[in-house]
Design a protein around this nucleic acid. Structure first.
Lengths: 252, 252
DNA sequence: GAGTGGTCTAGACCACAGA
DNA sequence: CTGTGGTCTAGACCACTCG
């Protein structure tokens, strides 16, 4: 009897096979039963190995259908270039990200919701407002039909109520330009990054499992006085994105 | 017969119990057998639930001994304030991070290795040098005895060979100040962040499992001409750190 | 209904830490 | 040596998707 292999070894072999292009991007893997027979492993071990690869973002399990190699390689999110006015205003609808992804050959889909709501506690504590509610704009974005991020922006009612910010089309340059027009120009940006498992809703839209992780980026825009006039929460699958920051060294 | 519960439910209950302080920071959890009996679940389900909590960084498994609630809450790593000369030069040995963590009440330990080596490919491709090797400085840092990060810096031989940079004590202000003194002042910093499972060596030092994730931060210092004169790789457990960036909005 | 992955079971054996 | 978690087994049943 040939010795059987454990789940780690199964994971290693499958990982190698994917990098080999034995199973190219988007391809369907054999079923767990088949893999178990082929590799001389127990199906539970195969299942566990596939969870690991899933957690790394290498494969995607379509329940009841099969397991597939993940179709979209990681995308880089450059932080600084996203936020200067000239670049904002040159892009078409969707802003800087749309421009970048089009350059990579993807077709973007954008599902927008606009309204008023009570922001999450972490946001409410920071936002400069006297109201419980704020204007929100939430976008669910996909590239070639694959969900890639959820972006939700909150703006104080005092500033945004009744303005273009509550409209579907916020005009050239988007919200940031409107804030400037309305006398609340942002002067500094801060981003706070945490990594955590997706919640149920995020997992559903982003097609993620509990073994995967999201970046939660809390992006704050402050005026020169330090007031937070815009708070945006980005939810990105970690296996789908790299983050990039660039800044001058303040070496006075 | 009362119905048994699955691994998700086990994970939820234990997570709640930890947030309750039923099991406070550092406490040992009951054994898997005990938990299985208490919660009316199978031990495999308990084991799987503990893996999930481990992946989130909530608990730490000391193999052969038991499972414990993780002792150290997440730390924030602010990116900008770390890199201006005045702050660098005020801190004691260990630099900006040491100062921050001391403020939080931790005792820092620092294990330094210095030498010459061939940098990883990703670094070698960026570093401006004609040699295969570069000077490296690697630090393994712990807070109150708990490992929290691995930091490895690579500097071209042309610049660093025979200088203070190859010494244990690099002098006031550290490497960055020495680079300036040597005529290679850094003008811009970039950081590229990815999230991935730890490799074997990282997992060993940082006491991590394959279910957890590290940030890999590739930190580059460039001169005004754009040459990379310093490349640093930070490895941080994601459950142990939040990252923070702040920058002015360049809105010309 | 057939095929896929998701999960649980009950028992077994192993690897490791510590007395 | 004992107790802990790590893993595998072989079988079973469930939930989901699609034809």
């Amino acid at each position: 009897m040939t010795p059987t292999i454990g789940y780690r070894e199964v994971a290693n072999r499958l990982r190698a096979a994917i990098h080999d292009d034995t199973y190219p991007r988007g391809a369907q893997l054999p079923t767990e039963d088949q893999l178990a027979r082929q590799l001389n492993a127990n199906r539970v071990s195969v299942n566990r190995a596939l969870r690991i690869l899933g957690g790394e973002g290498l494969v995607y399990v379509h329940r009841g259908v099969g397991t597939f190699v993940h179709p979209i390689p990681p995308i880089t999110r450059p932080a600084v270039t996203r936020h200067n006015r000239s670049r904002r205003e040159q892009g078409g609808s969707g802003g800087a990200l749309a421009t970048e992804l089009k350059e990579l050959g993807y077709t973007l889909t954008n599902d927008v919701a606009i309204g008023r709501t009570q922001p999450p506690d972490a946001v409410a504590a920071l936002l400069r407002t006297d109201h419980d509610e704020a204007v929100f704009r939430s976008r669910r974005m996909s590239a070639d039909g694959w969900p890639i991020q959820i972006v939700t922006t909150y703006i104080p009612l005092e500033i945004a109520a009744g303005t273009l910010i509550e409209e579907r089309d916020t005009g050239v340059g988007g919200i940031s330009s409107r804030l400037a027009d309305l006398g609340h120009p942002q002067a500094t940006i801060s981003e706070r990054i945490t990594v955590r498992p997706p919640d149920e809703e995020e997992a559903k839209f982003l097609r993620m499992t509990a073994d995967q992780r999201v970046y939660e980026i809390l992006h704050l825009g402050r005026t020169a006085k330090g007031d937070v006039v815009k708070a945006t929460v980005y939810i990105l699958p970690t296996h789908q994105w790299n983050l990039e920051y660039e800044y001058p060294l303040n070496d006075a």
